[in-house]
C-alpha cells in the first residue's frame, strides 16, 4: 500500500510512522483502510435514500430523544430538589432513612432499567439495519 493521501490523516496501521511497538519491533498488522479510500466503498446516498433507512432513523429518534429527556430530567431533579427543597428531601420515611437517599438510590435502578430497555429496542434496529444492508449485498463490518 502506498503512503496515504496527505490530506487524510486517519491512522494507517503498518505505516512507517506506526507508534504501536513503542520500542519493540513486531510484525506489522494488515493495512486498515483510510477514510478517503473508503469513500467509494458503498453508495452511501442510495442507502440513505431508501424508505427503510429513513424509517430506521425515525424509529431511533422516537426512542432515543424521549429516553434522553427522561433520564436528564430524572437525574437533575435530584440535585435541584436536594439544593432547593431540602426540607422535603430531609423527610424521614423509614427509621433515619430519608427521601433524599431513597431518591438517590432509585437513580441506580432507573439507569439499569433504561439500559436494559434500550438493549431490547436496539436489537430490533440491528435486524432492520442488516435487512437494509442485505438489499445492497453488504453486511455490517464489510
Amino acid at each position: 500500500m502506498s503512503s496515504p493521501d496527505p490530506v487524510d490523516l486517519t491512522p494507517v496501521t503498518g505505516a512507517a510512522t506506526d507508534v504501536a511497538p513503542l520500542g519493540r519491533a513486531g510484525d506489522k498488522p494488515p493495512h486498515e483502510r483510510t477514510g478517503v479510500e473508503e469513500m467509494g466503498l458503498a453508495d452511501w446516498d442510495a442507502i440513505a435514500a431508501t424508505r427503510e433507512f429513513k424509517e430506521l432513523l425515525r424509529s431511533k429518534a422516537r426512542f432515543i430523544v424521549p429516553a434522553t429527556i427522561f433520564f436528564v430530567l430524572y437525574y437533575f431533579a435530584l440535585p435541584v430538589l436536594v439544593g432547593y427543597a431540602p426540607e422535603l428531601m430531609a423527610r424521614k420515611v423509614w427509621g433515619n432513612l430519608n427521601i433524599a437517599y431513597i431518591f438517590a438510590l432509585s437513580q441506580f435502578f432507573m439507569a439499569w432499567a433504561l439500559a436494559i430497555i434500550y438493549v431490547g429496542v436496539a436489537m430490533g434496529w440491528d435486524r432492520r439495519a442488516e435487512a437494509i444492508l442485505a438489499r445492497f449485498g453488504r453486511k455490517s463490518g464489510q
Partner: peptide, 20 residues
C-alpha cells in the same frame, strides 16, 4: 454527513475483528 449517518446507523464499513 450522509456517509457518516449511514455508517453510524448500519455499521457498514466499520472495522471488524482482526483475523490474526
Amino acid at each position: 454527513f450522509t456517509e457518516l449517518t449511514v455508517r453510524a446507523n448500519t455499521g457498514l464499513g466499520a472495522e471488524g475483528a482482526s483475523e490474526h
